[in-house]
């Protein structure tokens, strides 16, 4: 592996080697026109915004899947009968019938990206298609709740 220490040495490598080259580069994220993020308050080059609707849903009493003629027998029993085909029957019926459970539904998901590069103080290298890379990670995450 040919090793160079700074980004401005990368040009020499490109001149000497046959393309395409696979390289590993490190530096600080920078952009001429960063995005001003509303929630995090950060200037960023890639922003993914998700909106989810949160709601409570009244838990409905589940219907026993046993045949009606077997239902009474199931209710009196301390454990599911062999005649009951619904293995979750007792778990479902042990919950209070008026309980509420929290649900979330995705409303939208938008991603914005501006041209950006990595800079190590000696030079910079534009990065394209980073979101499709394995293990690409957003380094800051913040949520806001609007009632």
């Amino acid at each position: 592996v040919t090793r160079v220490n700074r980004l401005n040495d990368l040009a020499q490598l490109l001149d000497a080697e046959r393309l395409p080259l696979v390289v590993t580069i490190s530096g600080k994220v920078a952009s001429e026109n960063p995005i001003n993020c509303e929630i995090t308050g950060l200037k960023s080059v890639i922003v993914e915004e998700r909106v989810n609707k949160l709601y409570l849903k009244k838990k409905e009493e589940e219907k026993c899947k046993c045949a009606i003629k077997q239902k009474e027998k199931c209710k009196r029993a301390t454990k599911p009968q062999k005649t009951c085909n619904d293995a979750d029957y007792w778990t479902l019926h042990s919950e209070p019938s008026d309980s509420w459970t929290l649900h979330s539904k995705s409303i939208s998901c938008n991603t914005k990206e501006v041209p950006w590069y990595l800079d190590d103080g000696t030079d910079h290298v534009h990065v394209v298609g980073a979101r499709g890379a394995t293990d690409f990670g957003y380094t800051a995450v913040r949520s806001k709740f609007d009632e």
């Binding site: 580069i25 915004e49 989810n52 609707k53 409570l56 380094t139 800051a140 806001k144 709740f145 009632e147």
Partner: peptide
């Protein structure tokens, strides 16, 4: 029966100034 609580907005960002290492093809 539903009670709407509100909207949760989540931002995931790659901020300016973050130190990053990338592997890619030139």
């Amino acid at each position: 029966d539903k009670k709407i609580l509100g909207l949760k907005r989540t931002e995931r960002v790659l901020p300016v100034g973050a130190f990053l290492t990338v592997v890619g093809e030139v």
